[in-house]
Design a protein around this nucleic acid. Structure first.
Length: 412
RNA sequence: GCGACUGUAGCUCAGUUGGUUAGAGCGCUGGUUUGUGGUACCGGAGGCCGUGGGUUCGAAACCCAUCAGUCGCCCCA
């Protein structure tokens, strides 16, 4: 029997890392609430087909990265690789199409069967938002400005570049892809090995290749904006104008492409300035997602951000609440200690009772957990009904009546 | 899916060209006249040297496989 261990790319989260993640999620929730988005949680497993139909059979995620398992009934179930498909399914199967516009936020674990490396795990966490509406809401702008606010509040916006592009609708893309194929075929000998495969599979992906030879070929490749329909062109122009009006800095990137097939029209990503292929938050519009799953024609826009990637970027301020250690000096004072403990139970203070053979040990424990105060309870304190409060940072001690203890800490 | 490097106590690592009962620091735990710590001293526990196989009189060290970690590529958040 092998040593017990976690599954590859799946880790336990505890201590500081847990608290950091929690802090980001709480901030995310408050920003989303501020934009009047509502929470939603969908199951972490769906029928395999949900993802195959939405993400696209040819996408890498579906082809080689899905955690698909058979249950006891031989049904093909998949651990969700992303959040959008499940929410789209929920909108249809819960009849939420009666309530549009819909503005949702979510967070939770996602699963992708990939080789673990920097910023990539098999189980990871995404926070994300979705807007489903017809034309009465500026979805793209709404969702991007939410992201902007979120990243600013995290104090990492300056590390990131917002890149945007418009892929056009299905028709636009079809003609564009044809043109691309034609162009790349002429330069087939100059393309990288990977891109020669892409040429057959999905020529759009050659555009965001990081291979130097490909980048050279890309310089003269036809640009998507030349193939946009008038309607999509004006959507894109309006979005850019709004971003400018509201001081959201961005770069138009005609080479920006997304790997999931459901995107159309606007796509965007916030990527590291220092490593532009490392996306922190990314998303776009999906015009055909709901209808693809058998629902009505309803367009959505959304994004997702990798919580673990965010955690690596954010500078956390350790805002620990005041920790108070309650130390009975002998066993017979334990009850008295817990009575003092009662004082703190409905306050912002964290407190605990610890008893050791001697005070030294207890104070050492206080150092270990970096407690701020120790309340000492011994013969003297019990007899005089006055408790000794020791500030563990300064070493100062005060004698305080029981009825004034809470007041003491509130003013400390 | 492809590639590089790594895998010795809870953590960070030593372990000499293969040679007896595998080491350190930190941490943990117990004690040092039993009411004062964060900066003292003494003791203790804790490792089938990732796992399985092979080479050898002998392997933590060499070979193979496998699992895991880190980092690239593909792709993605």
């Amino acid at each position: 029997m092998d040593k017990i261990k976690t599954i590859r790319g799946m880790h336990d989260i505890h201590g500081l890392e847990f608290l950091h993640q929690k802090q980001i999620i709480e901030l995310f929730e408050s920003v989303a609430n501020n934009f009047n988005f509502k929470p939603i949680a969908t199951p972490i497993m769906e029928f395999n087909e949900i993802f195959v139909r939405t993400l696209g059979l040819s996408s890498d995620v579906v082809m080689k990265e899905m955690y698909t398992l058979l249950d006891r009934n031989n049904q093909k179930l998949t651990l969700r690789p992303e959040g959008t498909a499940g929410i789209a399914r929920a909108i249809i199967s819960s009849g939420l199409t009666q309530d549009i516009p819909l503005k949702f936020y979510y967070y939770g674990p996602m699963f992708r069967y990939e080789r673990p490396q920097k910023g990539r795990l098999r189980q990871f966490t995404q926070v994300g938002v979705e807007v489903y509406a017809n034309s009465n809401i500026e979805k793209d702008f709404e969702v991007i400005s939410l992201a902007e606010k979120f990243l600013k509040d995290l104090n990492i916006r300056d590390n990131l570049t917002l890149k945007i592009n418009n892929l056009g609708n299905w028709e636009d893309r079809k003609t564009y892809t044809k043109e691309l194929k034609k162009y790349y075929s002429e330069f087939k000998n100059d393309l990288s090995e990977d891109s020669i495969i892409r040429l057959e599979k999905n020529p759009l992906r050659i555009l965001d290749s990081k291979n130097l030879e490909d980048i050279e070929v890309n310089k003269n490749a036809p640009k998507i904006n030349e193939y946009l329909s008038d309607n999509n062109k004006s959507i894109f122009i309006r979005l850019k104008a709004m971003l400018e009006d509201f001081n959201i800095s961005f770069e138009e990137d005609p080479f920006l492409v997304r790997g999931l097939d459901y995107y159309s029209n606007t796509i965007f990503e916030f990527a590291l300035k220092t490593d532009s292929k490392f996306a922190i938050l990314a998303g776009g519009t999906y015009d055909n997602l709901i209808s693809e799953l058998g629902g009505p024609k309803l367009s959505g826009t959304g994004w997702a951000a990798g919580l673990e990637r965010l955690t690596q970027l954010v500078d956390f301020m350790e805002k620990d609440s005041q920790q108070i250690l309650i130390v009975p000096l002998e066993k017979k004072f334990i009850n008295a200690a817990y009575e003092i403990r009662q004082i703190f139970l409905n306050t912002k203070f964290s407190s605990e009772v610890i008893i050791n053979k001697n005070l030294k040990k207890s104070l050492k424990y206080g150092n270990k957990i970096s407690a701020d105060y120790a309340i000492l309870i011994g013969e003297e304190e019990i007899n005089n009904k006055i408790y000794t409060i020791k500030n563990l940072n300064t070493g100062n001690q005060n004698k305080v009546k029981k009825s004034l203890i809470l007041e003491f800490f509130e003013n400390a």
